[in-house]
Amino acid sequence: MQTILVVDDELGAIEVVATALEDEGYRVLSAANGRHGLEKLTEGQVDLAVIDFMMPLVDGTAMAREMKANPAFKNIPIIMMSAVGESVVRERFDGYAAFLRKPFRISALIDTVRRVLA
């Protein structure tokens, strides 16, 4: 079973994304900000990180940059998600595998996850 880490400061967003991914047979870990997200990565094998852009304490791009700088996590593909446009996110970090503009449909999430994990 593949494990996906979902990092978002909005509880509603985590619940929706986690439930949809669990329904597809994935194991889901979650965290409410980048700092907790980095801690979760150390708890076991993570195959994909779905990370929100704006979060308190450590934001999505800061977390992603730390992942890429750490040999243990640098190969974990990242899907960035945000309510603002991709160009704004790309200015700060462009090492992600896919981008999802919020709000998105569950089908778009599942398709993107499958594509990135294929």
Partner: peptide, 18 residues
């Protein structure tokens, strides 16, 4: 939208409070 996130930043502290 161009002022987000450099000049205006949105975060939720709901989890933190919980």
């Amino acid at each position: 939208e161009s002022v987000i996130p450099n000049s205006l930043y949105y975060v939720s502290a709901f989890h933190t409070l919980e």
